[in-house]
């Protein structure tokens, strides 16, 4: 067994272990941390397959952004895991059936002859970096849609801010110059009333 195969098995073992812990850990923070480990190991396996771009993307996007956000949410919410676990055995048969179906479907797709990659296409010539190739395409042939997509994202950002930003009105901030300029007449209202007898 050569070194790459050995590394693959090591990563695969870590991946399976991490994925199992995601669903078995009692503490939600532990589960989220194991999910990070699973993503990271996935990235490592992609790197083994010479898909550097996907490897970097999954680490930057999922580990760097999505999971950090996820951890924040998990830490802030008080999730009662025991309540979630109730009825585990009741739902298990359905879960197993769905899982088996998914394995079967995947097997059908991967096993059918339409989806086989010819061996000649699978071997990349040496010195080809797919990050570089993607980048070159993105900034040459596809520069126009690439820039347009960035503008679409910008519009999304502007729209989100316009629709949710209500100005600093609901903060406790008090304008000092207004505070100093206040007069007694603005605060106290003197009413003229007839004297009332008991």
């Amino acid at each position: 067994m050569d070194i790459p195969t050995l590394t693959f098995f090591a990563f695969a073992a870590v991946l399976i272990f991490a994925s199992m812990r995601v669903i078995t850990a009692r503490n939600p923070v532990h589960a989220a941390l194991h999910l990070i480990l699973a993503f990271f190991t996935c990235g490592a396996i992609w790197a083994l397959l010479q898909a550097e771009f996907l490897a970097i993307a999954i680490i930057l996007v999922y580990v760097g952004a999505v999971m950090v956000l996820f951890l924040f949410v998990v830490m802030m919410l008080d999730i009662n895991m025991d309540r979630i676990r109730q009825g585990f055995w009741k739902h298990l048969p359905l879960g197993v059936v769905i899982g088996l179906l998914m394995v079967l479907e995947m097997g059908m797709v991967l096993g059918s002859r339409y989806f086989q990659v010819p061996a000649a296409d699978a071997i990349e010539p040496a010195n080809v970096s797919n990050v570089k190739t993607l980048g070159a395409l993105m900034f040459s042939d596809y520069v126009y849609p690439f820039e347009l997509a960035s503008i679409v994202l910008l519009v999304g950002m502007i729209a989100a801010i316009v629709l949710t930003h209500r100005g600093p009105k609901n903060t406790k901030y008090i304008n000092p110059s207004k505070q100093i300029a206040v007069k007694a007449q603005d605060r106290v209202r003197v009413l003229q009333m007839p004297v009332e007898k008991e």
Binding site: Y144, P145, A149, V152, V155, A159, V162
Partner: peptide, 19 residues
């Protein structure tokens, strides 16, 4: 690709303007 991106750019701006 550009046709779709143009359409989304238009639609996204319009949704925000309506809201």
């Amino acid at each position: 690709l550009t046709l779709y991106l143009g359409l989304e750019l238009l639609s996204l701006s319009l949704y925000a303007m309506v809201a």
